[in-house]
């Protein structure tokens, strides 16, 4: 029942279509260089950068095989922390944007020297909501949820938990000081995302870091 000068059009594309296209190109690009990409997400202060530092400390290979992109609203501090560990790192400052996008990552990748690199970590902007649907072209999503945030965060932020391949419950050294029901937290993560692997880490004594490396290794081959 179109009027003469009106027309109905079915589009059916995802609103994230353009981002997904760039992410798919990045994925191909990483694959062609045999680089395994990891998107690390979680709230501000959930321990993402510390987790990367621990992963670097426990890495068995040559540190030149690792590269890190750091996403933050402001400052180069996290990239400086990683560089201080001897791993090349580039900072992406998003200004006011609360998540990384595929094009920000594609642009930043050009600044890294990637020959010899086999694992790329991308620390997303600290946020338990916004980054979840913006594909970056990475192969694995890790979501960090820390003990001080409270055990109800997974059930309150199920969309983020759904995107995770691995959920890392960080700062478990602080369990004695917080009212955090580990069993319930694990159960709720499992209900939301039955396929997700759930790990526990404590950066203070590197608990769980080797197991995290093992899980990453299993997914990357």
């Amino acid at each position: 029942m179109d009027k003469d000068n009106s027309k109905a059009v079915e589009d059916m594309r995802s609103l994230l279509h353009k981002n997904d296209e760039v992410a798919a190109q990045t994925r191909k690009w990483l694959d062609s260089r045999q680089i395994f990409g990891i998107n690390l997400m979680g709230s501000p202060g959930s321990g993402k950068t510390t987790l990367l530092e621990s992963l670097i400390d426990c890495y068995q290979g040559d540190l030149a095989e690792l590269a890190v992109l750091e996403g933050d609203l402001e400052t180069n501090r996290d990239a400086d922390r990683i560089a201080g560990k001897g791993v090349q790192a580039e900072q992406i400052c998003t200004g006011s944007v609360c998540h990384l996008s595929a094009s920000m990552v594609a642009e930043a990748l050009e600044k890294l020297s990637l020959p010899g690199v086999n694992t790329l970590f991308i620390e997303n902007v600290g946020n338990l909501v916004c980054p979840s649907k913006f594909a970056l072209g990475t192969h694995l999503n890790i979501v960090a949820v820390s003990v001080p945030e409270g055990d109800d965060k997974p059930i309150k932020y199920p969309v983020m938990i759904r995107t995770a391949d691995i959920v890392v419950i960080t700062k478990t050294d602080l369990l004695p000081y917080f009212n955090f029901n580990l069993e319930r937290c694990r159960r709720e993560i499992q209900e939301i995302n039955p396929q997700a692997i759930i790990l526990e880490t404590a950066a203070t004594n590197a608990t769980g870091i080797e197991e995290l490396w093992r899980c990453i290794g299993e997914r990357s081959c």
């Binding site: 009106s6 109905a8 609103l15």
Partner: peptide, 22 residues
Amino acid sequence: TTIRVSDGEDMILQRLELELPD
């Protein structure tokens, strides 16, 4: 738990009503 999620996780531009020149 090995199920296929067929809807409810994305955002889709379904339809547009366009105005055409006379």
